[in-house]
Nucleic acid binder design. Structure first.
Lengths: 157, 157
DNA sequence: GGATGAAGGCTGACGTGTCAACAACGCGCT
DNA sequence: AGCGCGTTGTTGACACGTCAGCCTTCATCC
């Protein structure tokens, strides 16, 4: 029971505060642009990308969840909202009566095809093109290591 | 009007996907731990930290907003909820009748003092201690550069 | 076949974040 | 004083995310 743990030193603090600021500013900028340019949220975009890259433009909800790593509830809410907007639709799964198939509508396909190039430009402009090749590698390595650490503890489903 | 922009190559894609996964997994892990350990959300924590580091444990809402870089509405909602929980309270500003002072309650002070050491351990365990000194520097540099880029365009207030 | 438990998915409640509209105040001007 | 305008903060509506609880269906075992 030691109530004075090891605090962050100068270098550590810069990195930690930097990460937090990066997360806040970059994500909000990209989401705002995506919303203005294409009327899509980041969550919309993510589902549309996965479905549009899938053979047949349809996936079982369970598979879709594995792709984006959401929980059941979040996907159910998001799919319901997107179905109401006409971006996708739900049908029954033929092989398992518990399952639900999620399918891209032509409208959803058009939405992602319009949005993707614009979003890519924004990602480059505000992030990727600002980094050197070495920095790209470091970032990927960091992400991999951290995910391995949090993965073997918070491993739910 | 070129609809086939420059896509991300292998290295860029690893970095970009890595960042997105990092953001998702690290943040959700830290927030979940904070909530379980201390009953605080990330937003709660942020406000409590700023107030607890302030002389007199109180700040004008405008200053508090500048510290955490939120917009008016978000702060107003968050403060209202935290006031209902007894973590802080609002009083009138003596020098400007438009203003609102936000003040830490003893309960709020106790909450942040209990939470901070636990949160620090989690930040080290899941993130900072996993990085080499060089990686800390690279991360800080990346964050600085990206923020400079998004800052001079999305500069609202 | 019937019971039991796991898996898949849905819903409602609540906290959170964003946007637009609004009210109240300060400040400068005439 | 009165007007105009920017600043400050609040509110309501809605989208988003998490949690707990629920129902249906599948798989297993008796």
């Amino acid at each position: 029971m030691n109530d004075s743990p090891r605090w962050l030193d100068e270098k550590e603090s810069r990195a930690w505060r930097g990460y937090q600021a990066l997360r806040r500013d970059l994500d909000s900028t990209l989401e705002r642009r995506l919303s203005r340019d294409s009327g899509l949220s980041a969550a919309d975009y993510q589902l549309l990308v996965v479905l549009s890259e899938t053979e047949g433009q349809r996936l079982r909800a369970r598979e879709l969840r594995n792709e984006v790593r959401w929980d059941r509830s979040r996907l159910a809410h998001q799919v319901r909202r997107m179905e109401q907007r006409g971006l996708l639709l739900r049908t029954e799964c033929e092989t398992d009566a518990r399952g639900t198939m999620v399918e891209l509508t032509p409208e959803g396909r058009r939405a992602i095809e319009d949005a993707a190039p614009l979003h890519l430009v924004a990602v480059r402009n505000y992030f990727i093109d600002l980094l050197t090749p070495e920095e790209l590698d470091v970032l990927a390595a960091i992400a991999e290591r951290v995910r391995a650490k949090v993965g073997d503890e918070g491993c739910d489903e």
